[in-house]
Design a protein around this nucleic acid. Structure first.
Length: 304
RNA sequence: GUUGGAAGCCACGCC
């Protein structure tokens, strides 16, 4: 008795891709079932999470057989799926196929997926060319695209290009988000440019004070802890960790006052613990490491 | 239409 939208919903809720495909098989046997692009898109996403490239290829074939046309959602999902599955050449050919054969115009999401896939495939120069072409076609990058570009440039050692994008966001009034700040801090930290990293952090703190929706959060803190750990500055890393604990405690109290009970840590996660544990290991601070590890369980965090 | 894109640690694998 399920309608098509309900089926989309069920497919999405089935976390296990095998179960999702079984349910899909059942759906297709129902009388009057009509194939829908939504169903395929949800399945693509599920298989992408599981990094299962073979069933994705099979589904693309089924889609074609059923005459279901892929849209921008399909292609952006497929491009990032191919990338996650290590199919770099497929990611790129999907991007060209959609334009040349299907006559679709990629939207900003599809462009970002393609740019990120090229970056992950070690082709930063080609990624930047695609961005330039997009600009020539009159499309503008949004905050997500800029964070992707900046991260990609940082990982490819193109610091000045990353800086150019960071400036460009200001010039074009694209709001700077947490991802962009974190990516900038991380790339400066890894390049050993600590002064520059501090400048970005200060800018981020300013934005937080102004209430622009940017928050110095656990990822920023982990990046900074990692910076200190890499320089053998374990006490500085410990200081940051303590600050995270303090902010966690404050947050927990506010939630209690507000009457909500969830005990999900906001400023703490296993990466924060891993970073500090790694630092303590480097310094051969075994007893401190053991104490920290035991503390994880009290915080409802499970070691990975 | 509850369908798509971005940032941090370690380990392993590949170059």
């Amino acid at each position: 008795e399920l309608n098509s939208k309900d089926m989309t919903c069920v497919l999405k809720e089935l976390r296990d891709w095998g179960e999702a495909l079984q349910f899909f098989a059942w759906m297709r046997n129902q009388p009057g079932y009509l194939p829908e692009v939504f169903h395929y898109n949800v399945l693509f996403k599920s298989l992408s999470r599981a990094r299962e490239w073979n069933p994705i290829q099979w589904l693309m074939g089924e889609m074609q057989r059923e005459g279901v046309k892929r849209d921008n959602v399909s292609f952006s999902t497929l491009i990032s799926a191919a990338s996650r599955c290590g199919q770099h050449e497929s990611a790129l050919s999907l991007f060209f196929e959609m334009q040349e054969e299907k006559g679709l115009t990629p939207d900003e999401v599809t462009y970002t997926a393609a740019i990120r896939a090229l970056g992950k495939g070690g082709k930063a120069d080609q990624a930047l060319k695609i961005y330039e072409k997009m600009e020539k076609d009159g499309m503008r990058g949004d905050g997500v695209m800029y964070s992707t570009l900046i991260d990609l440039c940082g990982k490819a050692g193109k610091i000045s290009e990353a800086e150019r994008f960071f400036r460009e966001m200001g010039e074009r009034n694209v709001g700077k988000n947490e991802f962009v700040y974190n990516a900038m801090i991380d790339l400066y930290a890894k390049a050993g440019l600590r002064e520059e990293a501090s400048d970005i952090l200060r800018g981020m703190e300013e934005e937080e004070k102004r209430g622009r929706g940017v928050k110095v959060g656990k990822i920023t803190y982990s990046i900074l802890m990692n910076l200190h750990v890499r320089h053998g500055e374990i006490s500085e890393a410990v200081e940051i960790f303590k600050m995270m604990e303090k902010r966690e405690e404050e947050e927990r109290k506010t939630q209690e006052i507000a009457g909500s009970s969830p005990q999900i840590p906001i400023f703490m996660d296993s990466v924060a613990y891993n970073t500090l544990l790694f630092g303590l290991k480097r310094q051969k601070e075994l007893s401190a490491a053991i104490a920290l590890f035991r503390g994880m369980k009290e915080k409802n965090l499970s070691p990975s």
